[in-house]
């Protein structure tokens, strides 16, 4: 599928931020003389997705990727920033009427298909919920026919509609969740770790299905994942998140061929290679710091082999480099050597 890169994006996220209040209750704070505490879960994230494309957000736990997903579908309100869907700011509380109308056009697939389907509902009732909730259909026969079509679409038997979720395996449940997401004919689907709860052979089925549906309906995906190999197979563009900020945004090919940000490089190095005698994986030094108390300057500097005084002091802005946008002083100053980063190699 060819993509018109000059077409206006379907989703544009501008300077998105979310701060969570993680203070103790008022009384406990007064007694222990503690200040209020906040976590910047997402801090100034911007990206855009063209129609029909897949944009992947990768990051480890605490990177804020799920918070972004939930803000985009309206489950959490942003503290700051704009989320433009088809040029309408869906984060603007003044436009709830428009947002309600737009809501049918975006949907979400959740990580755990054991939790995202109500165990007490029959599968046909689960899939039909968006149809009735958006007031798209009310005739029973019509709904039944649509549910049967949707089940066939996700390669399940229409007769499966009469069963309950517990009668299905994880992969089949995720396909039911996909059928529900597709029910109202959305254009845009947020996929929050859609396969990380699934076994590999089933993961392949679900990823392939998502690709087929994208080709068939011209769907646009925001893919949230921690798995770089999944990104490689699914995404057109990638954003790498670290502690609520985008470290690097680049077209997938470019990111994997020439990762620029030291964190991206470390992530890629940490993925094991299956081929015997293949590139040994390098261990990253250190762990993600506590987001309540992030390091000053560039938040990655304690783990970065290229960090210098400026990195410890000053948070980097974005540098354009080819098709990529990178937040790194070293990249900006051209201090990146081509040698592998100074992390210790695995034996």
């Amino acid at each position: 599928m060819t993509i018109d890169r000059n077409a206006p994006p379907l989703l544009r996220v501008e300077d998105l931020a979310r701060v969570f209040d993680v203070s103790k209750p008022w009384l406990a704070r007064m007694i222990e003389r503690e200040p209020r505490r906040f976590v910047k879960a997402v801090d100034g994230v911007s990206f855009s997705i063209a129609k029909g494309e897949t944009f992947a957000l990768v990051g480890e736990s605490g990177s804020g990727k799920s918070t972004i997903a939930r803000m985009v579908v309206g489950l959490i309100r942003p503290t700051r920033g704009r989320i433009l869907f088809d040029n309408v700011d869906i984060a603007d509380p003044g436009r709830t009427a428009d947002v309600a109308r737009l809501r049918r056009r975006f949907q979400m697939i959740f990580q755990d298909p054991f939790a995202s389907l109500n165990p007490r509902f029959r599968v046909d009732a689960i899939i039909a919920e968006p149809l009735t909730a958006f007031g798209l259909m009310s005739d029973r026969a019509e709904i039944e026919a649509r549910v049967a079509d949707l089940l066939k679409l996700v390669r399940l038997d229409p007769a499966d509609g009469r069963k309950y979720p517990h009668e299905f395996s994880g992969g089949q449940r995720q396909r039911i969740a996909i059928a529900r997401a597709l029910a109202a004919n959305p254009e845009f689907i947020v996929c929050d770790e859609p396969t990380s709860a699934l076994d590999v052979s089933v993961q392949a089925q679900v990823l392939n299905l998502m690709r087929d549906l994208q080709d068939e309906f011209g769907l646009t995906y925001l893919l949230i994942t921690h798995n770089l190999a999944v990104v490689r197979h699914m995404a057109d563009d990638v954003g790498v998140l670290y502690l609520g900020r985008l470290a690097e945004v680049a077209p997938t090919e470019e990111l994997f061929a020439r990762p620029r940000h030291p964190y991206t490089r470390m992530l890629l190095d940490a993925v094991p290679d299956l081929r015997p005698g293949g590139r040994p994986r390098r261990a990253i030094t250190g762990e993600i710091p506590n987001p309540i108390d992030p390091p000053p300057g560039c938040t990655f500097h304690p783990r970065c082999p290229l960090a210098d005084d400026r990195c410890r002091r000053e948070a980097p802005g974005y540098t354009r480099d080819g098709g990529a946008r990178v937040a790194c002083h070293a990249v900006e100053e051209g201090r990146t050597e081509t040698a592998p980063p100074a992390a210790f190699a695995l034996a």
């Binding site: 809501r103 979400m108 959740f110 995202s116 109500n118 529900r180 109202a184």
Partner: peptide, 12 residues
């Protein structure tokens, strides 16, 4: 739980 979140996304 996610199924309640899913119902919220659907606009219920």
């Amino acid at each position: 739980k996610d199924y309640v979140q899913a119902a919220r996304v659907v606009g219920l």
